[in-house]
Design a protein around this nucleic acid. Structure first.
Lengths: 233, 233, 233, 233
DNA sequence: AATGAATGAGGTTTCATTCAT
DNA sequence: TATGAATGAAACCTCATTCAT
């Protein structure tokens, strides 16, 4: 019995070895330089052995990405569970989830972003695509629930939560994207300040001031405007 | 004399034939499915003929992207030149430039985005990389000048224009990106509404309210405007 | 343990298979007809398999050539080590080394000659070029040491050994070259007799007669000998 | 009438333009870098125009080579016609013919050598091959006649003139060959001294000493001379 | 379980030559 | 006569994946 368990663990360790290798190559040489040969070399496994742990080259990458997405999903879940305790700073908290997920493993985060955009998704087996799909849905779903809550509780302005959560997420991804492409083109970068400004923009745009006026001074928006907008959306 | 001119035009036409073919493939099958063979087949040119018009496979793609970027740069330039006449709706106008550039040729726009993120940039010849670099710089530079103007004129909040313009651009790209990845994962999409919300968020975040309060109707959202937008959505 | 050794041997065998195939094609169809496809076909390996044993097409050819050069170097080394025992017939012995190296594998010998003359050398990777360079230097260096010895011992006339050894080597190569071009032009050939005469010419040219006249009968040509030879031809 | 003649001359000029271009490329970039495109560019003719003056790419090269061979043949012819006047220094004169032919246009000389050795000859049309053959035969034939004369007149040792003339020619070619391969391998070269030594070797080897001893001081090497040379080198 | 060996399919690029104008 | 344009044929190389041991 224990033997089986130990074997399973070893297997899991070797899977991660391969995944880490793949991400390392992604970081250093870019997506299309990831070859089974290099993964094998870097993970000190043989090329053939990789096929014992993964059906495909893609499965390796998907595994990394799904793990990363699950981590973010975990944070979001926790945030959602504690939603009652986070008074008005829900956007701040949400953004922090994103940022932490990025900072925990920037390489995999950008790989994730790249992967979704890339045509590799097309060539995925239905099964793998489903895995990817489900993992993405989990993240998106949790974001949505959080935003829905914030809208319902009138922390955020009144508008379609689906769209609103997408805007927040898009903004974060956009910043990470621009950051990365600046690196690609060898610019210097200053992401942190960009993120701060972006968050501030969003905070001012998202905050439901009328409620805040009922005691909370956060947010950037003067009265008239906000009132008008509440109706508008 | 006329003969030469006609030849030059024919040449240009065939270049565009190839570029269109490449973008068509990009749209239908994704970036890494673009092969010279397919471009040739689709553009009804021979594989070898493509090398008469382009030195490289990459040059085809770069050509498409640079042309697209130049189009956007043109719009931005025009906006900047008319900056005096656009009272308070500079963000609106800026965003419209982006949106039009996207809508003019969504495929090339996403190709552009993809290309910058992708590691293909790394494998570019110095010359091509320089072309790409310059074209990107032009766009970014114009954005910056516009935002600088808006900050100077106190239309936008007082903060580093470099960062601010990046936030706006990132937000737009983020939305296009999310849009695209939704398509990839076979969701249905509703980008227009997402864009509108995003724009509104930004408007509220970016607008210099203190100035607006002074009686100026410029800035993102005064009442009238809001009314108009309510119908829009 | 034995398994590894066996594998290594098999690998070596397959390398030679490829090399032989390449040389066979060189013989029958000429240098620029050597293609990976043909090598693969002839050696019953797959085209891709060739890249398991050689990094390049050129590496295959270089391997053949270097091996051949090393063989000649071996003979020269041996001759040099036994230099004390070879009284006066050092030129004879030297020439024999050349001739044996040629006869052992005429095809590779001419390939060697061709390769050095050809511009292919220019397009070689620095690494391969270095290998070639070193192997050529070994042969030239040994020739030089032998000739130096002969000059020092006054077997050969007193002159710059560097130049002298080059003359001998050039003469041999020239004969092989002419031989080959006769074949190319479909003449019949009679190299052996050409070689004999050439050797005799050299012997008379190289021999230090003043020393011979002092009573030493070694060396190529004293007068009597010349008389005998006149009949021989 | 004159028009036709002028046209013919223009044609001839353009042929030489192309030939020179081809040889220039050969010199600077090596044989296999010669492409029709480059020849066209260098000769300021259009690629298609080349086919008006030459049937083939090979014909261009052959033309250069044949012209060069004809020049050598001319020298040899002259030498043969004046054979009576050149007392004992026939070898010297012969060698000078070779050397002049080399020095007149080293590039074409080595191209010639290369060409004969190369497999390109195989792929020649029968007609072109015949042209090449005939031009080579002319040179070889004249060499032979000269050597035959020298042997008959007992200037050279008594041996098969066919072989003897081949030895001389081979030696010269060998030296040029070694010279060239040294350049290829980026050594420094000192061909002139090599040639001198080689010529001297041959002189001593070829000279009919028995005759010389009979009072004739012509020829390469009498004893005194040998003594002198020992110091000189 | 693990791996060295093998390969088929596919991609980019080059170039001599032809053809319509 | 002269040429810009077009192309078929071929060459080299890479890589994900399978298989025998």
């Amino acid at each position: 019995m224990e033997v089986i368990e130990r074997k399973r663990q070893e297997r899991e360790i070797r899977r991660e070895l391969a995944i880490d290798a793949a991400m390392g190559i992604y970081e250093e040489e870019g997506y299309h330089s990831i070859t089974m040969e290099k993964i094998a070399e870097r993970s000190k496994l043989s090329r053939a052995a990789l096929y014992l742990y993964f059906r495909n080259k893609e499965e390796i990458l998907i595994s990394a990405i799904v793990a990363h997405a699950d981590y973010l999903a975990g944070s979001l879940k926790e945030l959602y569970n504690n939603r009652e305790n986070t008074k008005g700073d829900l956007l701040e908290k949400l953004w922090t989830c994103f940022q932490e997920s990025y900072e925990k493993d920037p390489v995999t985060f950008t790989a994730w972003e790249y992967f979704h955009q890339s045509d590799v998704v097309d060539s995925l087996s239905p099964e793998l695509r489903d895995i990817l799909h489900r993992s993405a849905s989990k993240v998106v779903g949790l974001q949505l629930k959080i935003v829905e809550y914030a809208v319902r509780e009138r922390m955020f302005i009144e508008c379609d939560p689906r769209v609103l959560s997408e805007v927040v997420w898009s903004t974060f991804l956009g910043i990470v994207y621009v950051e990365r492409s600046k690196i690609m083109l060898s610019h210097k970068s200053h992401m942190i300040s960009t993120q701060d400004i972006a968050k501030r923009m969003l905070a001012r745009g998202v905050a439901n001031l009328s409620r805040q006026r009922e005691g909370n001074t956060a947010g950037g928006m003067c009265d008239d405007e906000v009132g008008a907008q509440q109706n508008g959306l």
